[in-house]
């Protein structure tokens, strides 16, 4: 006789799940929750990492929100990059995936690899530094000088007028990542019948096709893509530091993350850095919640 495991009762029903989850939960507490709590606590102190923290109440928040120009600058930078690389990268991934989806199979896999390669490459953006180097032997400079468009080398990486754009290019280059892949996959398994039905129903051009048929089927990917994009665009920082210096001239490519690590590691003001971290975190969570709601409602159409 097969023994019947009891499936009733609290433990019976949920015990297994708690067991499986248990691992994860404990360390989640330790590695994620505790640092967040620590950050929140530290945000009310002055902590220079060598001596004990000194409690200062909400003065850090006051300074941050009212008196810190660099914060405003880095906030606007971060939002700027987030908007540009977020939606822009998103749309770009979508468009490229869409175009790729209509090519043949081998071409498609080759192109997918090509476009995914930058995010595989990770920290290999040194090349960009050679391209945008500020002396007359930097590749871009020498090409432009040879063409006669400029007479003296431009300081792409240190001149505040240019370095934001350099950063955007590089980040966009790296932005076609897992989201892009899921779009490619999504396109592949779209329901063909719907397209035919649409053609009969009078859909005349591609735009309508895209809006009415393709997009609604892709909502789950859009969701995933959104989550990934938000988290990565708010976390832009490392590339900027490498390319334009840390900090960049007049903080022109400074982002919230860099602002945070600047205060934390360069200025020895961990308390203030924690404040920035808390604010950054709040912004990210809010944005995500908003997008989540928006996409949910769209999928219910």
């Amino acid at each position: 006789m097969n023994k019947r495991k009891s499936t009733s009762g609290f433990w019976g029903r949920y015990g297994a799940s708690y067991f499986l989850l248990g691992w994860w939960l404990i360390l989640f507490l330790v590695f994620t929750v505790i640092p967040i709590i620590a950050a929140v606590i530290l945000s009310f102190t002055n902590f220079d990492m060598v001596n004990m923290p000194k409690f200062v109440g909400i003065s850090n928040y006051v300074t941050l929100l009212l008196d810190d120009e660099i914060f405003i600058k880095s906030l606007s930078n971060t939002l700027f990059y987030a908007v540009v690389t977020g939606p822009l990268g998103y749309i770009m991934s979508f468009v490229v995936a869409w175009m790729i989806s209509e090519t043949g199979r081998t071409v498609r896999s080759v192109l997918t690899l090509i476009f995914y390669a930058p995010s595989l490459a990770g920290n290999v953006y040194m090349i960009w530094m050679y391209i945008f180097s500020g002396d007359s032997y930097g590749i871009l400079n020498s090409v432009l000088m040879r063409l006669g468009l400029i007479t003296a080398p431009l300081q792409w990486l240190t001149d505040p007028a240019y370095n934001s754009y350099v950063v955007i290019i590089v980040v966009l280059w790296m932005s076609m990542g897992a989201g892009f892949l899921s779009f490619v996959a999504g396109f592949q398994q779209l329901n063909k019948e719907l397209f035919e039905a649409g053609a009969i129903d009078g859909i005349r051009n591609r735009w309508q096709e895209l809006w009415h048929i393709t997009l609604p089927q892709m909502v789950p990917q859009l969701l995933i893509g959104a989550v990934l994009t938000i988290s990565s665009s708010f976390a832009i920082g490392a590339q900027n530091a490498q390319l334009t210096g840390n900090p960049s001239t007049d903080y022109s490519t400074h982002t919230l993350l860099l602002h945070m690590s600047d205060y934390g590691y360069a200025r020895f003001e961990m308390g203030y850095a924690s404040t920035i971290a808390v604010v950054l975190f709040a912004i990210m969570v809010t944005t995500w919640a908003v997008i989540n709601r928006a996409l949910r409602s769209m999928s219910n159409d």
């Binding site: 330790v30 989550v227 920082g237 945070m260």
Partner: peptide
């Protein structure tokens, strides 16, 4: 729990770096 999972995705590693190191 699902929300917490999303939370872990959103948190940048720089935030948890130092406490983890000390830990």
């Amino acid at each position: 729990l699902f929300g917490l999972v999303i939370l872990t995705i959103l948190i940048p590693p720089q935030l948890t770096n130092l406490p983890n190191y000390i830990l």
